[in-house]
Simulated scan of single mutants.
Amino acid sequence: MKVLQCIIADDEPIARQILENYMESIPNLALVSSCKNAFEVMEVLQDKPIDLLFLDINMPKLTGLSLLKTLQQKPSVIITTAYPEYAVEGFELSVTDYLLKPFSFERFLQAVNKVQQKPNLAINPISEDKEEVNKSIFVKSDKKIIKLDYDAITHIEAYGNYIKIYAENKVLAPQTLSDFLLKLPDNFLRIHKSYAINFDQLKLIDGNQVVLQNDSKLPIGKSYRKAVLDRI
């Protein structure tokens, strides 16, 4: 997976430190510069190819949103702010996500996953490298951050406010099945209120259940059966 070259832009030292600490837990995020204002960001963007910008809104002299309006080509942007009222304007400027301070590591990771799932990451004009299509996802499990290849995931099971992800090893993650499916590519399909499968792993349909390539058998919910059959 491509290592994303990142900038942090925030005039508050504590806010920058929190982001830096979060980034250290994600192996494919590389911090290029931690900036105190928009002008420092502009200098970095002129000199180096940047994939992802963590951007505060309320900065001195030039706000984060004003900075975005000046950029003809910009990297993927995740807004980090204490002000919810600018969310609509932020999304009109094509930001990937909008994080309200204080935000948890889980919420931060969710935003980063959105960037990783974009078919083509925004490229600074200095960079001529082709971007790789993302083929994996990072998942928090206990105190670890685990990288899972999409192809290795056979199915996902709802487990209260957790999910069990079945791959080479079973991973228990603190999120709902519905939320997790939003982060996955289209070949993942919900077949039951408690199960979703990697459709590429489907071996056969036997009555009201699917059989996967590893011979796992899972039920098809009545309300999901049409969607399953439509995919065949």
Score class of each variant (00 low, 15 high):
135 K>N: 12
135 K>W: 04
135 K>M: 14
135 K>A: 08
136 S>V: 05
136 S>H: 14
137 I>G: 03
138 F>V: 06
138 F>R: 03
138 F>T: 04
139 V>W: 02
139 V>E: 05
139 V>T: 02
140 K>T: 13
140 K>V: 15
141 S>R: 00
142 D>W: 09
144 K>T: 07
144 K>C: 03
145 I>Q: 01
145 I>N: 08
145 I>T: 02
146 I>S: 01
146 I>V: 05
146 I>L: 13
146 I>P: 04
147 K>M: 10
147 K>E: 11
148 L>M: 05
148 L>Q: 04
148 L>F: 07
148 L>H: 03
149 D>S: 13
150 Y>H: 02
150 Y>D: 01
150 Y>L: 03
150 Y>M: 00
151 D>P: 12
151 D>Y: 05
151 D>G: 06
151 D>A: 14
151 D>R: 13
152 A>H: 13
152 A>D: 15
153 I>Q: 10
154 T>I: 08
154 T>H: 12
154 T>Q: 09
155 H>W: 00
155 H>T: 10
156 I>T: 00
156 I>K: 02
156 I>F: 03
157 E>T: 09
158 A>F: 03
159 Y>L: 11
159 Y>H: 12
159 Y>T: 08
160 G>L: 06
160 G>M: 11
160 G>D: 04
160 G>R: 10
160 G>E: 06
161 N>A: 15
161 N>K: 07
162 Y>I: 02
163 I>R: 11
163 I>W: 04
163 I>G: 01
163 I>A: 01
163 I>V: 14
163 I>S: 02
165 I>V: 13
165 I>R: 13
165 I>Q: 05
166 Y>E: 10
166 Y>V: 08
167 A>T: 09
167 A>Q: 07
167 A>S: 13
170 K>C: 14
171 V>K: 00
171 V>F: 09
171 V>I: 15
171 V>S: 00
172 L>G: 05
172 L>N: 08
173 A>N: 12
174 P>F: 11
174 P>D: 02
174 P>W: 06
174 P>S: 08
175 Q>R: 14
175 Q>S: 05
175 Q>D: 06
175 Q>I: 11
176 T>Q: 11
176 T>H: 00
176 T>R: 08
176 T>N: 03
177 L>G: 07
178 S>D: 07
178 S>A: 15
178 S>P: 07
179 D>H: 09
179 D>V: 08
179 D>L: 09
180 F>Y: 07
180 F>H: 06
180 F>N: 00
180 F>R: 01
